[in-house]
Amino acid sequence: MKSILKTIALLLITTGLKAQNVVGEVEYRYKIFYDKIYSSLPYLTEQERDRILLTWGNPEGYSTRMKLQFWPEKSLYTYGEPYEVRSYSWQVEDYFIENNLQDQTYLKYMDQMGKTYLVRDSLNSPKWRIMNEIRDILGHMCMKAVSEDTIRGQKVTAWFASDIPVPIGPEELFGLPGLILAYDINDGMLIVEAEKIIFGEPAEVITLPKKMKGREVSGTEYQDLVKKFIQTSIESKQAWMWDLRY
């Protein structure tokens, strides 16, 4: 643990924690590998796995862009500009996350499990373990941290930049002493990595739809719905990733 703290201290000294790094916009590439995911599901039949490998096997994965805007007091996250090829056909569906760091609350507005949900609750950070490893991402020295999503059965590996001192990241990840610039799930089944960072006030701030229609639930209620959906899918020998974001 002492060696990890020394490494963090060294990073803080060398990068300087510049004040202008607390406001900006990040463009991420969200890349998913369906063949890897489905090959790992023990409850699917061999015939179904072969069918998925034939239909969705792609060594480059399937990509879309996501966009994160951040300030010291909040962050906003949604879809970015789509790629011309290998993008999700369903990415036009609503998917929006706002983290309010001042009030320690969040809002999620998203199409999941065949319905639209509006989820509001208090922020509850994943349980992170900071590791003694670093890597360079877009010129920022990032430290490794690991966590686990027990509901989805996912091992999460994240890389955060301590010279961008905002405790947020893409998707539902936050709570580290620096902006999360990359993460992967289950050793590369899903890879999300920053492709571009622009510091300063965003030219166009992400906004929610004017009319938000959907079922409003708490964070606990939503997690219970996710658990039930995954369990029902497993019992039916179906892959839950089609209707629930991986």
Rank of each mutant, 00 (worst) to 15 (best):
D163N: 15
A145Y: 11
L173H: 15
L11V: 00
K67V: 11
L17G: 06
D149I: 00
A239K: 01
L208W: 15
Q112F: 09
D163S: 15
I130C: 05
C142V: 05
E148W: 02
T116S: 05
Y183C: 03
P167T: 12
Q154G: 02
Q69F: 06
K144C: 10
F160G: 05
V192E: 01
Y83A: 01
I197P: 01
K18I: 04
L76P: 02
A194K: 01
N186I: 07
A239Q: 03
N186Y: 14
D163W: 13
T55P: 00
E84S: 10
Y28Q: 04
G214Q: 08
L179Q: 10
W71P: 04
A203H: 12
P72E: 05
T45N: 08
Y246R: 06
L118M: 06
D111F: 14
I185G: 02
R245F: 15
R129N: 03
A239D: 13
Y43K: 00
E133R: 15
K211F: 09
S3I: 06
P82W: 14
E195C: 03
Q154F: 15
K210M: 11
A161R: 14
Y38D: 09
T15K: 05
D35F: 01
Q223F: 05
A19E: 13
L17W: 04
M1G: 08
V23R: 03
E46A: 11
Y222F: 15
A194Y: 00
S218M: 09
I206L: 15
G219P: 12
P59D: 12
I185V: 14
M143C: 08
L11A: 04
P126K: 04
Y117R: 02
V226F: 13
S87M: 00
I8R: 10
K196L: 12
Y246E: 03
P167H: 13
P126D: 03
M189R: 09
S87R: 12
K228H: 15
Y28R: 04
G24Y: 06
M1H: 07
Q104A: 04
W128C: 00
G114F: 14
Q104G: 05
V217Q: 10
I97L: 14
G214L: 12
D243T: 01
V23K: 04
D224G: 02
A203C: 03
E93I: 06
K115H: 11
E133H: 14
E221H: 03
L244H: 02
A182L: 09
I164P: 15
L176G: 04
L5Y: 15
I185N: 02
E25S: 12
Y79C: 02
M212R: 10
T150Y: 01
Y28E: 00
D149Y: 00
I198Q: 09
E216C: 08
Q20L: 05
Q223N: 13
P72T: 00
A239I: 08
G57L: 04
M110H: 03
I4H: 06
K127P: 00
K2S: 06
V119R: 05
Y62S: 05
I180Y: 03
V146E: 12
V166L: 13
G57C: 10
S40L: 02
G175C: 11
L101V: 08
M141G: 05
Y83P: 01
V156M: 13
I197C: 06
K2W: 12
Y43S: 02
L208A: 10
Y83E: 02
K228W: 14
V119T: 04
L11I: 00
L68R: 12
V192R: 01
K6G: 06
T15C: 08
L11P: 02
Q20Y: 13
P59C: 05
I185S: 02
D94T: 11
Y30S: 07
